[in-house]
């Protein structure tokens, strides 16, 4: 019983924390973010397993986590209103060549982040060539170039 409750609480707490820290929190994993993720998992592990290192406990925890994850995915699929709260929504940052600075500021995205994505993904040279930039639910930035760019 213990193991299932622990796994459920940790799952929900982590989900809330990651969700409220914004789209960009750990999307583009830098070296430091990787270290941070490792530390978070280390801190989580003890609370989730307690002092029971048996296979039964580990299996129970894993099954609980998978069950919660698939259930949540099913729920978000079944109830579209519930979906955004769990999985977020995309946000247009450049609309038809127009840079929407207020949205960018609120999402903690700078123009250089958009230019970086434009260079990396589309080989674009400047903002002029960007038709749309979308901050996706995953936190990555998609770029759609103007035709002919």
């Amino acid at each position: 019983m213990d193991a299932i409750l622990r796994a459920t609480v940790i799952y929900l707490v982590l989900m809330v924390i990651f969700r409220v820290s914004g789209k960009r929190s750990l999307a583009e994993i830098t070296t430091f973010d990787l270290v941070l993720l490792l530390i978070i998992s280390e801190a989580t592990q003890q609370a989730m397993l307690g002092d029971d290192f048996s296979i039964t406990n580990a299996v129970l925890v894993i099954i609980t986590l998978f069950f919660l994850d698939t259930t949540l995915a099913t729920l978000t699929n079944r109830f579209p209103r519930f979906g955004p709260w769990v999985e977020d929504m995309p946000l247009v940052l450049v609309e038809d060549g127009k840079v929407l600075t207020q949205r960018m500021r609120k999402s903690r995205i700078s123009e250089s982040d958009i230019l970086e994505a434009a260079r990396e993904k589309q080989g674009l040279e400047n903002m002029e060539q960007v038709k749309y930039a979308v901050l996706e639910r995953t936190g990555s930035i998609s770029i759609i170039p103007k035709s002919g760019a």
């Binding site: 409220v20 929504m89 995309p90 946000l91 247009v92």
Partner: peptide
Amino acid sequence: QIGDLEIDQDLDFQKREWIVERVSW
């Protein structure tokens, strides 16, 4: 539809989300 983009954007939701993010901070 936003311009030529077919996208699931919802600005009202987005605003609520920003408020929640701020409060959580």
